[in-house]
Design a protein around this nucleic acid. Sequence first.
DNA 1: ACGGAGATGTGACGGATCTCACACTTTACA
DNA 2: TGTAAAGTGTGAGATCCGTCACATCTCCGT
Lengths: 236, 236
Amino acid sequence: MSALQAFEEKKRFVHLKELLRSANHIQKIKKGTFLFQEGMVANELYLILSGKIQTGKICQDGKEMCFRICSAGEIIGELTLFTSEPKYLLTAKVIEDGEVAVIKKDYLEEQLLLNPTLTFEYMQWLSNYARRTQTKFHDLILRGKKGALYSTLIRMCNSYGVRLKNGSILIDLPLKNQDLANFCGTTRESVNRMLNSLKQKGVISIAKGKITIHDLDYLKKEVQCENCPVEICRIE
Amino acid sequence: MSALQAFEEKKRFVHLKELLRSANHIQKIKKGTFLFQEGMVANELYLILSGKIQTGKICQDGKEMCFRICSAGEIIGELTLFTSEPKYLLTAKVIEDGEVAVIKKDYLEEQLLLNPTLTFEYMQWLSNYARRTQTKFHDLILRGKKGALYSTLIRMCNSYGVRLKNGSILIDLPLKNQDLANFCGTTRESVNRMLNSLKQKGVISIAKGKITIHDLDYLKKEVQCENCPVEICRIE
DNA sequence: ACGGAGATGTGACGGATCTCACACTTTACA
DNA sequence: TGTAAAGTGTGAGATCCGTCACATCTCCGT
């Protein structure tokens, strides 16, 4: 599945990404730094060329909620376009070195209004984004923490899964227990216990910090997955 | 606050709403019926002229998650525009008789691409929608069920609050415990207990099925509210 | 190869929340 | 205005989940 899907995904929003790529300048990003932080005035968007970025919300009490993990080809800094109060709602942390194409918000808005093809693609992108967030919403709230974790794992498969020869799916992304906890709104310890219980059942295994899913159907059944389209059921 | 805000809100997206209002036809909606249901092919959008509509997700096991309660001036059926798989993700239940203006998705998409003013307004609307969903997200997940309820109440104030002479805020919407539970992803009983505890503390009172907030600051403090803009911190 | 930092694994306990059961109150409307 | 239906209030017990504490493991740099 994954290869074809990735290919299809790459072909989407080509004009939009072309515009972004042709942008004012390229910026190197370094692991551990922030591309932007919550509350900052937002006047730029980014297209990831390489590396990985995690967006999320960091609370005063140290809690952290993770929204997306994005890699090459993804657009970041969205949602600020055309808004009256252009401040980033989230923080974007670099988790793998790389480069982003930087584009000024004003310029992009201008281009979008001039070019219907771009308009179309951007709206498509934004609608998809909103639909993704909305489905995540009930996944995370409706079936307790276990449901939250399972559905996060399913999304990870759709976004970063690599099908192995034996049919299992490797989530090709180094994920710590704490990271998953931040995605699910739970704690490291709870994630650890749940993952171990999945290991014992033979549903998953973990090697070198990466999770392999052996029995995706088990997870799907547990969360009463409705097999919504893959462009919606993903993590980024 | 509320009066002015409502006024400001009314002035937003005027061209977009004008287009919707000039639509193909007007449809009467009757309490208890569904405007559309999850999974249906989506080829229409609606502008509410009067009455109230609740959108949400209904699960097989009877659980229900409520997303928005919308009244006159709100747009419903969104998020299907420009998507490749145009199916409604949510169900829209009429909770108060009224009328909606119906507009064909195809026609609206066409108009949007022709008219930059419309494009601009729609994007603005969609961005706001996405931002609203995103902030709700962590409000509901990060601070337990109590946090979920409190933040729902705060949003209700911003959307349906009427400031009374004594400074309290009446949420001018008949809300059952079960409704609030569906917004928060919790149970009727839990909501009931939490509301009663708030009553005892004098933070709220309830009369004729409507909640009045006496001490909004108490709620805000409890959820570490960051006073995000009102167009984002709302229920619809 | 070693030491230490960071990550994982796990028990014990407590509080939050759900579930079930049922009494009571309010509302709708015949 | 009486009566059923719908909604609310509340206890008890079970379960989920977070917190704390600490042991163990893994990986990385020197």
